[in-house]
Design a protein around this nucleic acid. Structure first.
Lengths: 195, 195
DNA sequence: GTCTATAATCCGATAGAC
DNA sequence: GTCTATCGGATTATAGAC
């Protein structure tokens, strides 16, 4: 305890990111001070500012990392599938899994209002994973698997229910694990858009 | 200008609420100081604290007022309808209208993360309008109009797409007015759940 | 009820030693 | 790179006159 268990270098940087994620997702960005992070991560204020410059850039680094990782997960999940339904199901399945296994990540990446603290950030619907989801529906329309409706409507119809279920799960409203609803949620989304 | 155009009494109170809504919805709760509200509303700090006690109670008063009003709008919209589809359509129609006519209200009531600044507030999905939406689907299941699926799944499938479309509209992503998507959105939601 | 002036606190960020 | 100590500023809230 006394003899500096403190991380250093890259490990320190990661420790700060992990702690920031935990606190931001639990309390929100504005309810979390740099001092809170310093204390919880067992590092110094100076180290945090050395690595990240300021509080907003810390949040941005965290957001970029996690969003990119999520985009990768989504891309990997859909890769094996070629049909529109299969891809949609894979996306929802991986999002549900992430919501259960890394709820803090989903809370921070999908449910937070980033634009309140990351002033220059575009809306999340234009980010990589969401663009991928919209593209899947556009391709489904092109191939005739999906009805010929407005692409935004198709994407929100297919995934809107799933996203709201994730919201409920993260808010602790659901009694059953999210995975147990997967089949029904996919079925509903697909019925909404299928040709 | 000089001779005190300032509101007083109940008018002052409402002026503060209106200004708080505008600033909270545009900048977020934490990016808005009491002094910002004081300045924009053309009232004194003392008056604000006299009427509301503190910043959080101001936000709570605003939230309660607007949520209650929205619940009323939803209730009034559904009242003339008896079938499940008609009620669902009426709910989405009124939510779309409110999103266009009072975007700040929808931004603050539906899209903000209240629990970050209203610590004791339950999740919004348990609020009156959302409970009403879920009830409509439960009744639809009971009457056989809706497939026999988990009520949460049914409610999120029916309304999740519409809520995401509202999100897109409020983020300025959509080019067309929200109303123009109404038919397709309702159609998708209903296909998702209909028996 | 409304006002101004100010108190008390907290926070983000920096300085400078090591 | 990491640390501690501290600064400057902003914010919430209060005090007390009117």
């Amino acid at each position: 305890m006394t003899t500096s268990d403190r991380p250093r270098g890259a490990a320190l940087r990661q420790q700060v990111l992990d702690t920031a994620l935990a606190l931001f997702s639990q309390q929100g960005y504005f309810n979390t001070s740099i001092h809170d992070i310093r204390k919880e991560a067992n590092v110094s204020i100076g180290a945090i500012y050395h690595h990240f410059g300021n509080k907003e850039r810390l949040a941005k680094a965290l957001y970029d990392n996690l969003l990119e990782a999520m985009a990768e997960e989504v891309a990997n999940a859909t890769a094996p599938h070629h049909g529109c339904l299969g891809q949609c199901r894979a996306v929802i399945a991986v999002l549900f899994q992430l919501s259960e296994q890394q709820p803090q990540v989903m809370q921070f990446v999908l449910m937070a209002k980033h634009r309140e603290f990351l002033r220059e950030e575009p809306p999340i619907c234009s980010s990589r994973p969401f663009a991928a989801m919209r593209l899947i529906l556009e391709q489904g329309i092109a191939s005739g698997e999906v009805r010929n409706i407005e692409p935004w409507v198709a994407a929100t119809a297919m995934f809107g229910g799933a996203l709201r279920m994730m919201n409920l799960a993260l808010d602790g409203v659901l009694t059953q694990p999210l995975d147990s609803y997967l089949d029904e949620v996919v079925e509903c989304g697909w019925r909404a858009v299928q040709a």
